Amino acid sequence: MQVTINGTKHDVDVEPETPLLWVIRDTLGMTGTKYGCGVAQCGACTVLVDGQATRSCVTPVDSVAGMAITTIEAIENDPVGRKVVEAWVANQVPQCGYCQSGQVMAATALIKQNSAPSEDDIAAAMVNLCRCGTYNAISAAVKQATQA
């Protein structure tokens, strides 16, 4: 099976129902995308699939064959992703950092779909869990990224 991740085509020898997360992490060695809950609730595993925030822990790899998958490793190659990362750093969002790759991916997807999100839009889109409680900093960073 062939998947395109971060602009590179990869031939992977895995079962079709293998979660995309394990292909990214175990098969291809890109460990920036994190495993959190395994049931699409926490968002630590969020990647972009054709620009949409997608929970890779429950996404069978065969369902994304032929689609453009972006992981945290390449997010700064995208102008919006770069602005989000810069805003994350400026607002000192991460504490432990575990959820932050998924948070950045969700914020990038939001801003690509809505360049001027309201507070309600941000709250509705940024539903990934953060055990450190950096939600106020996340919201501030999203706002800053839209103004950059």
Score class of each variant (00 low, 15 high):
Gly102Asp: 02
Thr8Pro: 01
Pro79Met: 12
Val142Phe: 05
Ala106Glu: 01
Asp121Cys: 07
Thr108Gly: 11
Glu86Ile: 04
Asp11Pro: 04
Gly102His: 00
Asn136Phe: 09
Ala106Thr: 10
Gly51Ser: 11
Asp78Val: 08
Trp22Gln: 08
Val47His: 04
Val84Pro: 02
Ala109Gly: 10
Glu15Tyr: 06
Val58Glu: 00
Val12Thr: 05
Ala141Lys: 02
Ala65Asn: 10
Ala40Ser: 14
Asn128Thr: 10
Leu20Glu: 04
Val64Phe: 11
Ala40Arg: 02
Gly29Glu: 09
Gln52Val: 13
Asp26Arg: 15
Ser115Phe: 01
Thr70Glu: 15
Val93Asn: 05
Val127Tyr: 06
Leu28Asn: 02
Ile5Thr: 01
Val85Gln: 06
Cys45Thr: 05
Gln147Thr: 15
Asn77Ile: 05
Leu21Ala: 08
Val142Cys: 12
Thr59Trp: 00
Ala125Pro: 08
Cys42Lys: 03
Ala125Ser: 15
Ser56Met: 08
Ala87Lys: 06
Thr8Asp: 07
Gly36Ser: 09
Cys42Ala: 11
Ile24Thr: 05
Thr46Asn: 02
Cys132Phe: 11
Thr18Asp: 12
Pro79Asp: 13
Ser101Glu: 02
Ala137Asn: 14
Val93Leu: 12
Thr71Pro: 11
Gln2Val: 13
Cys37Val: 14
Ile138His: 05
Thr46Gly: 00
Asn114Asp: 12
Thr46Tyr: 01
Val142Leu: 06
Ala65Phe: 06
Gln100His: 13
Asp11Tyr: 10
Gln92Ile: 10
Val12Met: 02
Met126Val: 10
Pro19Met: 11
Ser63Glu: 13
Ser115Glu: 15
Ala90Gln: 12
Met67Gln: 15
Met30Val: 08
Gly81His: 04
Val39Trp: 05
Met105Cys: 03
Gln2Leu: 10
Lys34Met: 06
Val84Ile: 14
Leu129Trp: 03
Gln113Trp: 07
Gly81Asp: 03
Gln95Met: 04
Asp121Arg: 02
Val80Lys: 07
Ala68Asp: 15
Val47Pro: 00
Thr146Asp: 10
Thr54Trp: 05
Val93Cys: 10
Gly7Cys: 12
Arg82Asp: 14
Ala137Ser: 13
Glu15Asp: 14
Ala68Arg: 08
Ala125Asp: 03
Ala109Ile: 06
Gly51Pro: 09
Tyr35Thr: 03
Tyr35Glu: 04
Ala90Arg: 11
Pro94Cys: 04
Gly43Glu: 07
Ile138Ser: 02
Cys132His: 09
Lys112Asp: 04
Asn128Ile: 10
Gly38Tyr: 00
Met67Thr: 14
Ile111Gly: 00
Arg131Thr: 11
Asn114Met: 11
Gln2Lys: 14
Gln147Arg: 13
Asn77His: 10
Asn91Ala: 04
Gly43Arg: 04
Cys42Met: 13
Met67Ile: 00
Val3Ile: 14
Asn128Cys: 11
Ala124Pro: 12
Glu15Arg: 13
Ala68Val: 12
Ser118Ala: 11
Leu48Asp: 01
Ser115Thr: 13
Trp22Arg: 07
Ile72Asp: 01
Val64Pro: 04
Ser139Ile: 07
Ala109Asp: 02
Val89Phe: 03
Thr33Met: 07
Thr27Gly: 06
Val47Cys: 12
Asn128Glu: 08
Ala125Trp: 09
Thr146Tyr: 09
Val93Gly: 05
Gln113Glu: 15
Arg55Pro: 00
Pro117Gly: 11
Asp120His: 12
Thr27Gln: 13
Ala116Glu: 15
Val85Phe: 07
Glu86Gly: 04
